[in-house]
Nucleic acid binder design. Structure first.
Lengths: 334, 334
DNA sequence: ATGTTAATTGGAACCGGTTTAATTAACAAA
DNA sequence: TTTGTTAATTAAACCGGTTCCAATTAACAT
């Protein structure tokens, strides 16, 4: 592998001049030509580590998330990567670790220029705030870290309101909820959206119709749906706070020989990949996941270039995607 | 951020000594204590770029794939990351680009120590072989690059054989196939597995029962299933070469009011996330995707440490996961 | 007291870039 | 001819580590 010194020797100039050519600084045209020829001849590629050491910049962003495969974080990764690639940055992905100090390691050792943290759990909160105080560039996606760190979030409240309103307009008056963990901010906001929609249409809120799924996964949905069905007066529609829980609910219904949406309308939350794949296709509140990644990455780059200096919180809007599971459209049209 | 020089000064030793302490080389116990104290006091973290420059090593592996969200590559990423993290390596993910030369860039600029390439398409084949000739560490997952590059693959043939045999044993004699692109090696092998299973049970192979999905996606499955149903004598079971195509096929069937598995048994391939999520849960050939990532990462690390020098090809075994869509088990047991 | 050996440690060079300050060359003005 | 100005280039220092080689010190045998 050729180095800048070899290029300089072959071109008959100093390495400072080669560096200038590489960085498009003013150089005599004749000299530039000679250097370019040498670069081509040696198939030279500047060493990123040497460059990074000198410029104190890795051109790498770190992403910390619970997983990358899941229905949620996959698209987020895609969005981030897309933006970074266009700006000649790379993306290191790392699963969230138990040891909090590990969070800081990549930043402190200058392996990455900034960190995007995507996790709904309150993990590493202290560590994050400490890093923020040291002025490391940090963006949180969908987190619970608070005002002091820049973030990208979604309007959970509005999404829940829209979903509930949609079901009400379809004629449902008893609408069950399969919630996420009540300690999560998102769950609280979504529940508020649900309540406010009921109120707008003068429908009573009934606590027994709200059941809390311990996580956002399929099995929770299936279990909680069974609970709702066992009520003296079961709901005719159910709104789950994740697509997977909605699908779990449908599993429960189909196993009992009930039909969706005829016997029970179901609405999910996320518009993850499985929502369109499932049958019946799932009506759901769309979270713009790819866009969240895109916005987070742009924000990070802006912070690094000094364009953005204050802490900001971007709230992306949700939208209702109507498919077959709520009964608003026929399945063969979906 | 403290540097090794500051640590050295505070500890009253030379930076060579600090370096020795950091790298656990023999140092007088008393000296080590002083150095460790200085490190702690300054909250010192060695600069990865400087270290990398000196050691000619980034401790980063690059992964190039078509996407990271998909049902397939997500778990692969998880597997790779898991192994790397344990060995204090990081993972840069990058989508496959059209420009072939980009493949080489990260390697040549020493941003990564090696490249794992996961793509069924014959992309960058020339570029990959060129890099291999320059002795860059490369591992291909599920690729079509040939003998010259180390790889991790699955036994497509056996998986298809098992799936077909399973359907035959359930009593089916006319088994449709929704294949992947016939130019892909996997498709060819899977088709061979299908044929050999038929042969073993003295069933005739009929070309009309094989329809080729242009990609591995849902819409292909739906379209090809419609084609199979339109045959004068349609199959009673269908084997799709991906879970998504199997699900597409089921969409087609359910829309026509047919029931799965009663009217048509369906088997997929991948055992991706959607296979368990779908209803009816999908019988499918499991590809150990996480394990593929794990094996690829281990292989890469072995190459880097010099333990593994020859080109090797690891073939992982598939297994049939029986769920409800093939009719072998009742749905409420699934 | 002197020589030998082993254990520690420090100075300096190096990895491959960028950048600042100094040098050289070319040319115009005095 | 001398001096000032400008443009282009280079030498050298620096980024923050690792490591080779030599120097120092301590311990021990002669």
């Amino acid at each position: 592998m050729a180095t800048i010194n070899e290029v300089a020797k072959l071109a008959g100039v100093s390495k400072a001049t080669v560096s200038r050519v590489l960085n498009k600084r003013p150089v005599n045209e004749e000299t530039r030509r000679k250097v370019m020829n040498a670069i081509r001849e040696l198939n030279y590629q500047p060493n990123a580590q040497a460059r990074g050491l000198s410029l104190r910049q890795a051109r790498i962003i770190g992403l910390i998330a619970p997983d990358f495969q899941g229905v949620f974080y996959g698209p987020v990764v895609m969005g981030i990567e897309q933006v970074l690639q266009r700006n000649d940055f790379n993306l290191i992905v790392s699963r969230v670790q138990s040891k909090e100090y590990q969070l800081a390691k990549m930043l402190k050792e200058k392996k990455v220029d900034g960190l995007i943290i995507a996790t709904p759990r309150r993990i590493g909160e202290k560590a994050i705030l400490a890093l923020k105080k040291d002025n490391f560039p940090i963006v949180v996606i969908d987190g619970n870290v608070g005002e002091q760190v820049s973030s990208v979030e979604i309007n959970s409240y509005l999404g829940a309101f829209q979903a509930t309103e949609h079901l009400i307009k379809l004629g449902h008056t008893r609408i069950g909820v399969i919630s996420g963990p009540s300690s999560y901010k998102e769950s609280q906001e979504r529940l508020l959206g649900y309540k406010d929609a009921l109120q707008k249409y003068n429908l009573p809120f009934e606590q027994e119709l709200v059941s809390e799924g311990g996580d956002y996964l399929l099995a929770s949905g299936e279990r909680e749906m069974a609970g709702l069905l066992a009520l003296p007066s079961p709901p005719t529609a159910v709104f789950a706070f994740s697509d997977l829980m909605a699908i779990g609910a449908i599993h429960c219904l189909l196993k009992k020989g009930l039909s969706v949406p005829k016997d029970m309308a179901v609405v999910g939350f996320d518009d993850s990949f499985v929502a369109q794949t499932f049958y019946p296709p799932l009506t759901t509140v769309r979270q713009p996941m790819l866009e969240m990644g895109v916005v987070a990455a742009r924000k990070m780059l802006a912070m690094l270039s000094g364009e953005e200096t204050e802490v900001t919180h971007v709230v992306l809007q949700t939208s209702l995607v109507v498919r077959a599971s709520c009964g608003a459209v026929h399945q063969h049209q979906a």
